[in-house]
């Protein structure tokens, strides 16, 4: 009785590989034994738990739930045989269904191309032909008149995209110029933040979860 659990447990742990014949014997036993199948589930669950590999949401018994849902489904009466049931036509119909999906996919692609084209267009409604600011430029070469030209109503999406780009570039720069000293001032910095946090926690009580 306990020997078969022991065998199964060893198999789950990957420690049962001495003879391939014995592991296939255990697998056959699992196939024919509902109790062992239950064990199989729980051993794997225990192993995942011990290794902290459990996913955020655990869906137990998806197969069982699907089977239950199918059973509780109202019964559909078999329709009369129509021309659709002829083998040749039955094969054609899936193609038309696929065609529909292709059309959807194609329209998405077109939408994306239009979106990209709009993005790449220079700002037409600028009053004068200022050189467009290049977001990727290094070293703060921003045009002086930038803020004035912004006053002209502009497409918000483009504007925001450009701002996000600036943030991304700045983030990369910050990481690049980050310096770390192994010995000095690290502890003092930590100390500062802790003090600051303590000061903050006095002020406000509500912290998000």
């Amino acid at each position: 009785m306990s020997q078969k659990f022991e065998d199964l447990s060893a198999l789950v742990d990957g420690e049962h590989s001495e003879q391939p014949s014995s592991s296939s014997r255990v697998l056959n036993a699992v196939k024919n034994d509902a109790e062992l199948q239950q064990k199989w589930k729980s051993y794997h669950l225990i192993r995942d738990g011990l290794r902290q590999e459990l996913p955020a949401n655990i869906n137990f018994d998806i197969a069982d739930k699907v089977a239950q849902a199918l059973e509780s489904e109202p019964e559909i009466l078999a329709p009369k045989r129509t021309w659709r049931d002829l083998p040749l036509v039955a094969q054609v119909i899936p193609f038309t269904k696929q065609g529909g999906q292709m059309a959807i996919a194609a329209s998405v692609a077109v939408a994306m191309i239009i979106g990209v084209q709009q993005l790449n267009q220079p700002d037409v409604n600028q009053p004068f032909n200022a050189a467009p600011p290049i977001p990727g430029i290094q070293g703060g070469l921003s045009p002086v008149s930038f803020d004035q030209t912004r006053a002209v109503p502009n497409s918000d999406g483009v504007e925001q995209r450009r701002r996000i780009n600036t943030f991304l570039i700045d983030h990369k720069q910050q990481l690049r110029f980050k310096t770390t000293q192994l010995i000095d001032d690290e502890t003092s910095l930590l100390q500062q933040t802790i003090e600051k946090e303590e000061a903050q926690s006095d002020l406000v009580e509500n912290t998000p979860q």
């Binding site: 600011p133 977001p135 990727g136 430029i137 290094q138 070293g139 703060g140 070469l141 921003s142 045009p143 930038f146 803020d147 450009r162 701002r163 780009n165 600036t166 943030f167 570039i169 700045d170 720069q173 910050q174 980050k178 910095l189 930590l190 933040t193 802790i194 600051k196 946090e197 903050q200 002020l203 406000v204 509500n206 912290t207 998000p208």
Partner: peptide, 28 residues
């Protein structure tokens, strides 16, 4: 002020800076 920081996370740098791309001033 930031009231929530994940456990073990600290503020290592804080300043006002002008973004090189757009020239806008932000707190970083």
């Amino acid at each position: 002020t930031i009231n929530y920081l994940p456990k073990g996370m600290t503020i290592v740098k804080r300043d006002l800076r002008r973004l090189s791309g757009s020239g806008e001033v932000v707190e970083y």
